[in-house]
Design a protein around this nucleic acid. Sequence first.
DNA 1: AAAACATGGTCAAAATAAGTCAATAAGTTT
DNA 2: AAACTTATTGACTTATTTTGACCATGTTTT
Lengths: 160, 160
Amino acid sequence: MSSLTKVIGDYIVTLFSENSSQSEVVLRRKDLAEKFGCVPSQINYVLRSRFSPEQGFLIQSQRGGHGFIRIMQLRFGDCGEYAEHLEDLVGDAISEQDSRRLMVSLQERGAISPRERLLVEVALRNQEEQGRVLFDLPPYKRDTMRAELLKKILVSLAMS
Amino acid sequence: MSSLTKVIGDYIVTLFSENSSQSEVVLRRKDLAEKFGCVPSQINYVLRSRFSPEQGFLIQSQRGGHGFIRIMQLRFGDCGEYAEHLEDLVGDAISEQDSRRLMVSLQERGAISPRERLLVEVALRNQEEQGRVLFDLPPYKRDTMRAELLKKILVSLAMS
DNA sequence: AAAACATGGTCAAAATAAGTCAATAAGTTT
DNA sequence: AAACTTATTGACTTATTTTGACCATGTTTT
């Protein structure tokens, strides 16, 4: 049985493939909702659950007159497999040292740019510091949280 | 369909690229309003919403006979200055929406790449979610933490 | 200098459209 | 069947655009 959410999600995906050269799609929340006979907020749910940054999409929107929702797909490579591999590499928990080693190796292989690596390191360090200072988290918890953040970031980049 | 505000904003942008050596454009509110068939105050709205300091513009104007509106494109000299400007823009607390707007604007101005923006969005979302779900932080606290992370990231990028 | 004229600015109302949140409902897993 | 996850809904909130009435400030004419 296919849920409305899936139907709408699939529909949006076809919009991407129709204009195959396009890597973005612009739509009206109200119109989409009408087309599928649902409440407008259902569209938000579809977007939240199927078109998140973690899944390689970026969304811009505007309220008010002439409002719109723009969904952008960032695609550089086809790397579902690569993404899985990354998830394995990171695992459920990862130390600060290992994460740094991984990033260095990714950068050396050209998977991420130096700026991107810097950016990830800042994000990881920030989380580490807040976990330690603000919430007094134990080391293991910080390692699992580091792994989670790292995976989200790397996977989204791999799929973009 | 495109809003009048966008049309007028785009038109002003073309004025900048026409005289590409110029980093400023001078116009007459009344004439512009007439050209686009709208009330003059619509022009003020366009300027306020599309050519703000946040978006890298400064505006001077003069009333009375021979009045004018001058739009100047800001340019940041060295990185330090740019970084300070960013810190001011983000402030001590920033909403999810405002942070997204800032990043869209930075991306449009070429300050960050789409991948970098994706990366930041994933990091921000991750922190937001953990703050909400794991630590049950109140909205304001999440806004301050978002501002901190965003500033760290943007400043490090600006100085890289 | 005063009056008249020419501009631009502010503010708020109305219209339009998207976002949030929490209560249910419907599926899935254990 | 209990617990958990995912989907659906709608009441309420927030944001953007458009418009117009009224205000402020220069320049030109008298």
